[in-house]
Write a protein that binds this DNA or RNA. Structure first.
Lengths: 133, 133
DNA sequence: AATCAATGTCATAAAATATAACATTAGCTA
DNA sequence: TAGCTAATGTTATATTTTATGACATTGATT
């Protein structure tokens, strides 16, 4: 599955192709780049080259705009996403899997309001709760 | 799985990209087209546009040439392939599956030479010999 | 009415591609 | 060996595509 990801991130499409695939104008595509929503690679001759991931991103942007979101709103969405992404990676480096994290979050909710757990035995063995975000 | 096939057959790559992906020169790529080994689509401006399938085909051609096959040899290979493909489709339209076809072929071989099935027990059970290819 | 975000339009320069012609190279054959 | 041919290189010219920047338009919001 790693190879597929590689393929999707290879910058092989010129802007003309991207225009057709996304039904956006060159002006729009370049404008979204200027707003840091996408970051196409440049080839030796300074032409922008796009990947399939870029196509997906552009289609997403189109959808968001159609939904009434403006560009700075879209920027926030992506900022939040990459923050979550970063955190996931950090946890992963700490040896925690996604399901670990889900378990931890659930424990947090269980203790909301400073409730003491019912019986004393198996509760919160690793002191997962006092998070300050 | 149909969508993937569609993606692979979409002509979205300019010749410059194809050159990089295949490590062929524009001259070579156009020459193979002239020899009917590939058939890129033209865009409105008469530029050749290639698909991922074209890339695969070009890499194949490269391999064949490296193996010492010449272009008319490669053409024969592809002609044979499309013949087999056609036949498979025809059978499929007749409602025969691939394994049906295999069974039929095996039956054919069993009766080669007009032999009656052997009443004698274990002699040459599949009539392996009198093939004329 | 003034402002601003998103996009359109236009001019200019540079890069990429198409086409066609002629050149080179390496392998085969008379 | 000389000649032939397949595959590829090279070069010139025309057309298309793209980049960039400036100015224009549009529609929403204040």
């Amino acid at each position: 599955m790693r190879e597929k990801e590689l393929r999707r991130s290879m910058s092989v499409l010129p802007i003309g192709t991207v225009m057709k695939l996304t039904d956006l104008t060159a002006r729009q595509i370049r404008y979204y780049e200027q707003q840091d929503l996408i970051k196409p690679v440049r080839n030796e001759g300074n032409r922008r080259m796009y990947s399939l991931n870029d196509i997906d991103r552009l289609l997403e942007i189109k959808d968001y705009l159609d939904d009434g979101l403006n560009i700075s709103g879209i920027k926030e969405v992506y900022k939040k996403q990459s923050q979550l992404e970063d955190e996931r990676k950090k946890n992963l480096k700490k040896g925690l899997t996604d399901s670990d994290v889900r378990r931890i979050l659930q424990d947090e909710f269980l203790n909301i309001g400073g409730l003491k757990p019912p019986s004393s035995t198996f509760d919160n063995p690793n002191n997962f709760n006092k998070f300050n975000h």
